[in-house]
Design a protein around this nucleic acid. Structure first.
Length: 105
DNA sequence: AACCTGACTTCGG
DNA sequence: TCCGAAGCCAGGT
């Protein structure tokens, strides 16, 4: 049976290695739809729990955490730092260094 | 079927 | 480099 876009997103998110991050757009692009970044958000919200997704490894294209302070920002940042991901003074991650880049592409 | 919404992204100024 | 606007996906109501 054919895999759905949703399933591909789930699989990709599961593959993000620790110590690395991926962007919403990147995941959507790898799943086949460059413009479905917002759909990644929906997937995370709807199934991170039952699919045990490493939700905190997904950030925005600017290299920043999209969650707002008091709404998960601190938690996500600490979880990433615990894996070795570093943030600069402006809460940005150096994507050159920490972006998950599968060898293929 | 229309309208709203969200952890987005890209582009122009 | 920093906004703001406009574009986009699909589920929920």
């Amino acid at each position: 049976m054919k895999t759905t876009f949703h399933q591909r997103l789930v699989r990709l998110i599961k593959k993000i290695p620790r110590g690395k991050v991926a962007t919403y757009g990147q995941i959507a692009r790898m799943a086949g739809n460059p413009r479905a970044a917002r759909q990644v958000v929906w997937v995370l919200n709807s199934s991170w729990e039952k699919e045990k997704l490493p939700w905190y490894r997904v950030i925005n294209s600017k290299g920043q955490i999209s969650l707002k302070p008091g709404q998960g920002y601190e938690l996500q940042k600490s979880l990433l730092e615990k894996e070795g991901v570093l943030f600069d003074d402006h809460g940005r991650v150096n994507l050159e260094r920490f972006l998950w880049t599968p060898l293929k592409i």
